[in-house]
Amino acid sequence: MALPKGMRKPPRKGKIGKKVAYFKGCALEGPARDYDASARLVAKALGLELDQLEDFNCCGSLHVKNLSFKASLLLGARNFSVARAQGHGALVAPCNGCSFALKRAERLLSDEGKLSELNRLLEEAGERPVDELPQAHHLLEWLYNEAGPEEVKKNAVRPLKGLKVACYYGCLYGMPRVFSGAYPHASKEEELAVPYGRETADDDEHPYYMDALLEAAGAETVELGPYATSCCGSYFSLVEPELARSMALKVLKEAHARGARLLAVACPACKLSLETALARHEDLKLSVVYFTQLLALAFGHPPGSLGLTEEAWAG
């Protein structure tokens, strides 16, 4: 469930920066083009800047690390190198898999001696070593902190009145906290003791950034309870489709039972998994959309231009 309004923390402006390196990831270059387009529109409308990395490599997702720890860190280090070369101290990724992999790499590279070890590999590969580790964030964390509900409200020329949306965050958005830095309730003193505490991280157990933004855009959010962060099974969409489907179905059923029409997500892999399950369960009258599509819609962009099909939008 999303943290109730009275317990939420206001955005921490300036902690990440208005201009950041945009780590698009493989999916947004390809099938999740609509996510990319809407993310850009939203950032622009909110006076923020996504500076796309001119060159990047796959984050390694959850797969490369299973074969080799070192290789997974090398992929991360090269991405950080590219971001630094473009002069950035912060990277923003729109996908849970990417943000997980980048945060993980950031955290593990900050261990004693790790960065110099990986820098040697980068040099061997003819790449620029990383002078300073940039911080990795999820797109949603960035939008909430650098713009926040206030700005969204100001820009919502066509509020999403009467739209019932369930916000689905997925597992890797905030988990595990050792990588996401989500220690939202630690005191200042304790934050120091928790070495990777990140002020801009969402709540560790009851994330609310997406709810807050969509509420500000005029939508009515629907509570998903524990399913807001339970895994959609996308890791196994292909490998163990039955398992993945039963996991996705739990989320879909809950959203449906709570009366949602739309399920907003912040990750292309979640969308794929949820839609694959939906394709077999058309009785669940739900459409899965990116939260940025809904924001862009509220900002006045026509649904067609956002890649929102008629069935997703009307009905």
Binding site: L172, P176, S230, C231, Y235, F236
Partner: peptide, 11 residues
Amino acid sequence: WRCVSCQACTH
């Protein structure tokens, strides 16, 4: 091998 890597356990 059926772990889906969701990290809830580690979390």
